[in-house]
Amino acid sequence: MEFFLEVLIGGLLAGVMYSLVALGFVLIYKASGVFNFAQGAMVFFAALTFVGAQEKLGLSLWAALAFSLLLMILLGVLTEKIVLRPLVNQPPISLFMVTIGLTFFVEGLAQLMWGTKVYPLELGIPDEPVATTIESLGLSATNLPTVLQEINSFDLIAAIVAGVLVAGLAIFFQITKIGRALRAVADDHQAALSIGIPLKSIWAIVWSVAGFVALVAGLMWGARNGVQFALTFVALKALPVLILGGFDSVMGAIVGGLIIGALEKLAEVYIGPFFGGGIEIWFAYVAALLFLLIRPEGLFGDKQIDRV
């Protein structure tokens, strides 16, 4: 039982990392109906810019952070202006395919700017069991349950970051004027336009926010696995989370991430050995697919009503 709990908690925390990436997809999909396949490339771009600015430009950690944030916002705004605005009113499939093109372009751009080297990314977060971290702070961890002691500090902090991010986004969406405008646009572009919401600047904001989310995800994933080209595949991990949670629900991204993370780890431990391992490449997809057969719009997605 304890082992089961350990695996489960590990999975849930890993799932949070998926949610971080999935969030970026959801934001853009919600506000503009574009399924932005380039989110993974943006994560890679952000992480590479962050370490590249430190290594090549000699910026300090905070300056590099500000620099990458600025660049992500610029990237987002330019994407919206150059790539997506000319394609307004095109079928969603064209928009999706243009973001596949964007994926390649952003990946190429990032490597052109900062080179193809593999960089380590150091945020100063310990990658060790919680118990060790607590002890290194001079406290005693003996009265914690063993299950909790075994949790990785890094995962825990990633989960906290994701939680703060989601809470921040929720507040942003619910309370601020821009947030309400965003929700209005998400509901109905034309109605929002007709009551005077500036659609163009709203979309630019959404892309900037997605760039910010990509930066956070890039930092966490980069610190975990190092900044390398494989970071772009993170997006592929986030896709089953998306279809499970529903493309247009922030809540879905979080809950979907937790479910996929937990299922994946549990399957790896309990089912994997029967297949000779390596099932995590496809397990999440198949799980999400089976789920979709029951609920085609995902867990929290809006139900689509078709009219002729």
């Binding site: 499939i93 999706f96 493309f247 490449i281 496809w282 997809y285 979709l292 057969l293 085609p296």
Partner: peptide, 28 residues
């Protein structure tokens, strides 16, 4: 078969299941 119930992007992502599952099966 999933295309009968799933449409659009959900289906596109679902076809990725084939993309990852089949090469894995061929190796395993």
């Amino acid at each position: 078969i999933p295309s009968l119930r799933i449409r659009g992007f959900y289906l596109a992502v679902a076809t990725l299941a084939a993309q990852f599952f089949i090469p894995w099966l061929l190796v395993k």
